[in-house]
């Protein structure tokens, strides 16, 4: 199966290309675009990005494996990132993570059996003043309480 962007996303790609003096510079934004559609960066996506931006596949793989946010295997429908770094840990990030693990029945790094949620830990998300916090897909949830986390996770599992 070869990969291709939807026509709308392909138009966005053309816009992205205009921002830079060469095609390679568009690689990271374009990989985000592809991951938004595909959920992860498969070998097909790597080959596609290589052709589309005229960079070697090995270069694309190097970039994909360097950055934390590019998924190298399929993930759940929703991604829950719990910040674990010190300022959050001082305000209960450890307990927050344990709470999520217990409620979802999985460990950090795993996906629920129904494929709905992948739970992960994040390194500092620049939200230290509103700790503890977690990122759900593209949204920050800050100053979390157990009740707020329960409501959030219930909503995601629905």
């Amino acid at each position: 199966m070869t990969f291709a962007l939807t026509p709308e996303r392909d138009q966005e790609l053309e816009q992205i290309l205009k921002r830079y003096p060469n095609r390679m510079a568009a690689l990271i934004p374009v990989l985000h675009l592809a991951q938004d559609q595909n959920g992860w960066i498969s070998e097909e996506v790597v080959e596609w990005a290589s052709r589309r931006l005229d960079v070697p596949p090995a270069h694309v793989r190097g970039v994909v494996t360097f950055y934390t946010l590019f998924n190298q295997k399929p993930v759940g429908k929703h991604q829950v990132w719990v910040c674990r770094t010190l300022p959050c840990a001082l305000r209960g990030a450890g307990q927050l993570l344990a709470h999520c693990e217990k409620k979802l029945g999985i460990h950090a790094g795993e996906t629920t059996a129904d494929g709905k949620i992948t739970l992960r830990t994040a390194e500092c998300l620049a939200s230290c003043g509103t700790a503890p916090m977690m990122q759900v897909d593209k949204t920050y949830h800050e100053n979390l309480t157990p009740e707020a986390v329960d409501a959030l996770l219930d909503e995601l599992r629905r």
Partner: peptide, 8 residues
């Protein structure tokens, strides 16, 4: 690229 732990 704000990401230094403690920086917000």
């Amino acid at each position: 690229d704000e990401g230094e732990p403690g920086t917000h």
